[in-house]
Amino acid sequence: MSHERETTTPDGSPHPASLQHHFDTPRQQLEAALQGMWLFLATEILLFGGLFCLYAVFRANHPEIFEYAHQYLSKFWGATNTVILICSSFTMATAVWAAQVGRRKTLLAMLALTLLCGCGFLGVKFIEYQHKWKEGLLWGVHFRPEHSAEQFAQHSAEEHVATVSGEHTSSAPATATSRPQLFATAPATSPATSQASPDTQATQPDPSWVFRSPGNGPRGLRPPSAAPASLAPEQRVRNVQTFFAVYFAMTGLHGLHVLAGLAVITWILVRSARGDFSPAYHTPVHMTGLYWHVVDLIWIYLFPLLYLIH
């Protein structure tokens, strides 16, 4: 990129190498770039705005799902990630400052640290996702929370399907349209998820979604002390998969943005190492910083909305 800038400068023109031909002054170019970046960030906020709106609608309509299902998220790992991202925002801000005052070594170190924090965030996210995956705490039809081993021994899968499909014929229309009936039910379209169905609970005294073994998960991923298993049948919540759809949509899109941010920071790091930036020209560092702060800011909202529901 910088190579191109140099070659495209008209010979003998007063333009500095980094100034594109259609701008009169570096200041005008910087202002244009910053305004463009802020507008782009506004579109990013609106992109996530759709998801926040989705969250608000579902939570307002079905608060019980959120109160119940958020217990399966790990506050420990969520908080850890929050701390990591706040630290990375600090290192990013320092990097921008270093670029402004021309301290190249600080710039490089701070960009590397930011990169490290971003990777750490994604690593933690990976741990969390892997756990959800193993436990079947997924969206839509893929929501198949594990039963305890004993219950699996008691009932074969075929029996579940038979029981459920038999009982669903009478209640299926109601499940699609009515308000929650405060017990868990599986979507009518997917007999495979019926392990979690309330109708099986009618035949089983103590079924529910409990973790395979509380001691096995990573720290913080153990089930809450008030385990769902101890809930009475009428307290159980249906359509829990909706929460996980919202969770994966929001954190997934955010994760993609972190990934994109890491790619851009790597590129900026390479350019910094090459010596492209100076106190007179460091617009890309500045703009990457703005982007990274917005990505952090979105997480600052995601963490309490998803993990800290009371």
Binding site: G140, V141, F143, P187, T189, Q241, T242, A245, A249
Partner: peptide, 18 residues
């Protein structure tokens, strides 16, 4: 797209969506 590709359950009424 994810609703259609992965039965996400955000919009489809039979999965609790709206």
């Amino acid at each position: 797209i994810v609703e259609r590709a992965a039965n996400f359950g955000i919009f489809h009424p039979s999965l609790g969506g709206d």
